[in-house]
Nucleic acid binder design. Structure first.
Length: 112
DNA sequence: GCAATGACTGGAG
DNA sequence: CCTCCAGCCATTG
């Protein structure tokens, strides 16, 4: 087994483990990976997803403000919001309502 | 290999 | 809660 994977691959692993109806932040994922300062890399990794065969629920990943920063990278600017609403997450003005309640740390659902 | 880029973050106003 | 500035770091050209 490989202990260390590519940063992007690690992001995909965590994001794919996000429970439905919950959201997390880029910083939280980066911190879990050990590179807290690389929150931007998490976003960059997810952006590449649109050009990758991998199906990751990237719509559950938002920035620290709970804003759907990456909605523009989706097939349609509203696709991300629609998906979140389908999962029971309410979106208001491109931001997650009760974000702090829906927010879950990767370490919390990844567990051990 | 160097330079530019970015779905970010924290601090300050 | 919102806006602006500067730092970070892996990927890409």
């Amino acid at each position: 087994m490989k202990k260390h994977k590519d940063f992007f691959q690690a992001v995909y692993e965590i994001v794919s483990c996000i429970p439905e109806g919950r959201v997390t932040t880029y910083g939280a994922i980066a911190e879990t990976l050990g590179t807290k300062a690389s929150a931007r890399l998490v976003g960059t990794a997810l952006k590449q997803l649109k050009n990758s065969p991998t199906k990751i629920p990237a719509h559950r990943v938002v920035n620290r403000n709970g804003v759907l920063t990456g909605k523009m990278s989706f097939p349609t600017p509203t696709f991300m919001q629609e998906l979140l609403e389908t999962e029971g997450i309410e979106i208001k003005n491109d931001k997650v309502v009760r974000f702090q309640e829906l927010f879950i740390h990767p370490k919390d659902f990844l567990k051990k």
